[in-house]
């Protein structure tokens, strides 16, 4: 066999490799498919947060739950409700917009309950963008926390009330909770009800103490009920709790010690219920 005949396959393979590399360079670097027509789920996480906040704000304005859900589906969050509630808490923690935090909380609560708080507004027929590879919308409840409340768990309402504009809230009752399930943290657990005794999501609660104040919203922990919110107390601090929209306040809440029959001691939690008359 002559040397030139032995080299020819190498040239063929070299040509194949060069062609392959040129093809890959063109496809991946020079002209990748769809760069200028990206999908929502590819957005950077902070842009996704902006988008989610906008979905919730739009929902507050139009009460079209189907439209809001369709939009959320396009973001392809593993769990839309959790994504909404986590972002709402982040908005509050980072001194973000109260309106957006409230909107996110209300949207999460309404999706969890499966209907809009304002059913009189009929859904729009405007086409919402679709991503063909998305399967049909599936709403999944968030997994419950490891700590399960054993007391006064509010049953889910058959209808989600929107934050009620009406009479100021009054204090219905408050009790010290000494259940062992609450041993790890000492909480103020607030539940807010409207005049029809339905839980109210999206209601801003203010906790104030000597050195400052903080706020939190009902409905962000829907596993405990739509009208539920809680706040972790620090030892040796006295708190005043009130609904931000006005009404009665409850001063003098501080962690009190509980003791069981075996002599074990821990700091208890407060359960506080507000209602509209």
């Amino acid at each position: 066999m002559s040397p030139s005949r032995r080299q020819s396959p190498i040239y063929l393979i070299t040509g194949l490799i060069i062609g392959l590399l040129v093809g890959l360079f063109y496809s991946w670097v020079y002209s990748p498919v769809g760069v200028l027509e990206t999908e929502l789920y590819t957005l950077r996480s902070d842009f996704k947060d902006d988008y989610r906040g906008l979905i919730a704000s739009a929902y507050l304005a139009n009460s079209d739950l189907g439209r809001a859900q369709s939009r959320l589906d396009l973001l392809q969050d593993e769990d839309s409700i959790r994504a909404l509630t986590v972002q709402a808490q982040r908005e509050l923690g980072q001194e973000g917009s109260d309106l957006i935090a409230r909107a996110l909380g209300i949207l999460a609560a309404d999706i969890g309950n499966g209907f809009s708080g304002n059913p009189e507004i009929s859904p729009s027929n405007t086409p919402i963008p679709t991503e063909t590879q998305i399967s049909s919308p599936t709403i999944t409840q968030t997994a419950g926390p490891s700590k399960t409340p054993t007391l006064t768990l509010t049953p889910l309402a058959s209808r989600t009330p929107t934050p009620t504009v009406g009479a100021a809230f009054i204090l219905r009752d408050y009790t010290l909770v000494c259940e062992s399930a609450y041993q790890e943290t000492s909480l103020i657990m607030v539940r807010v009800f409207n005049s029809a005794n339905q839980p109210v999501p999206g209601e801003k609660i203010v906790a104030s103490w000597d050195q400052g104040q903080d706020s939190f919203f009902t409905g962000l922990k829907i596993e405990f009920g739509l009208g539920y919110a809680d706040f972790e107390m620090s030892p040796d601090t006295s708190y005043t709790i009130r609904i931000a929209d006005g009404g009665e306040s409850l001063p003098g809440l501080s962690p009190l010690e509980c003791e069981n029959d075996d002599g074990d001691r821990w700091l208890g939690s407060w359960s506080v219920n507000f209602t509209q008359p």
Partner: peptide
Amino acid sequence: MIIIGLSLGLFYGRVISPVKLVD
């Protein structure tokens, strides 16, 4: 062979493993 390689490269880069955009 260059044409075959180019075709394979384009097919792989566009169909089998297209660019996946993130962020």
